[in-house]
């Protein structure tokens, strides 16, 4: 069993995942898991963009899209960076694409996966999980 960190440090250790998926696990010494999580979440994100998915803005006209934005914001830097680079733009041509629904689902899922990774890193840091 590894030594547990104080609560404030555990919160701080959960945050690096927002910069890069799996980074918190790397900071906690879980190299293999960190690599696997990085590959899985990145692949889900890339597949979502490839399938014409949208990175929803928080001021989208549809409440379901706004809810999607909440899920996708779990991607952290990938969400902010992707939007800043103009990737996954929500427009009429994107919405009418047959694969839009699939792509957006991939992107929301990637965000939710990243949120779970943050919680997992926190649990490891406080000693709730090995």
């Amino acid at each position: 069993m590894r030594p547990t960190f104080p609560r404030w440090k555990a919160y701080a250790l959960a945050l690096p995942t927002l910069l890069l998926p799996g980074l918190s696990h790397l900071c906690l010494g879980r190299r293999g898991r960190a690599a696997a999580f990085f590959l899985i979440v990145s692949a889900t994100y890339a597949a979502g963009l490839h399938l014409s998915g949208a990175l929803f803005p928080f001021d989208a006209p549809n409440w379901l899209y706004r809810l999607g934005a909440v899920g996708q914001s779990g991607l952290g830097l990938l969400y902010v960076g992707g939007r800043a680079l103009g990737l996954g733009k929500l427009g009429p041509e994107a919405v009418t694409d047959v694969m839009f629904g699939y792509g957006s689902t991939f992107l929301v899922t990637a965000g939710l996966m990243n949120m779970l990774l943050m919680m997992d890193a926190f649990d490891i840091a406080v000693g709730r999980k090995e």
Binding site: I40, V41, A43, A47, T109
Partner: peptide
């Protein structure tokens, strides 16, 4: 592809 990625994620988690 979606199922594979989700299944792998939860298996590793």
């Amino acid at each position: 592809a979606y199922s594979v990625l989700v299944a792998l994620f939860f298996a590793v988690l």
